[in-house]
């Protein structure tokens, strides 16, 4: 799990409590399945504020396992920096189900 760093870009991710879906916290405090919509924190303070909001949603039984993830920006498109988090954001790297079978 990524630690807050003063310099790097960070987003908050979690899983939706009911569906389990991977979600990212948006600037308006709601949750989105799209990392593109995630609020990006560029300072340690901003990241902590973002995480605090996520923790409140955890306590309110909206999401589980909120955590900061490191983000890299390509132009202004954010993507998680580490493979694990990229797979969480984008799904398995292998085809599955009927798509794989055909």
């Amino acid at each position: 799990m990524a630690k807050a760093q003063a310099t790097g870009a960070l987003a908050v991710t979690a899983n939706d409590l009911r569906s389990g879906t991977v979600v990212f916290r948006r600037p308006d405090g709601r949750w989105s399945e799209e990392v593109l919509e995630a609020e990006i924190a560029l300072t340690a303070e901003a990241a902590q504020a973002l995480l605090a909001g996520a923790r409140a949603d955890h306590d309110a039984c909206i999401v589980v396992e909120p955590a900061l993830v490191e983000i890299t920006m390509t132009g202004n498109r954010p993507a998680p920096r580490h493979l694990r988090e990229r797979i969480r954001a984008q799904g398995p790297t292998v085809a599955y189900g009927a798509a794989a079978a055909n």
Binding site: N15, L17, G20, T21, C61, V64, R84, R88, G91
Partner: peptide
């Protein structure tokens, strides 16, 4: 009880695990 908030995730986790429910990378 979990969905209503009566139970926290910490309390629920061992109970869901005893019934084969994990929270994995993408979903339950």
């Amino acid at each position: 009880r979990r969905l209503s908030g009566e139970m926290t995730e910490d309390q629920f986790k061992p109970l869901r695990l005893m019934n084969g429910v994990y929270l994995q990378l993408h979903a339950y």
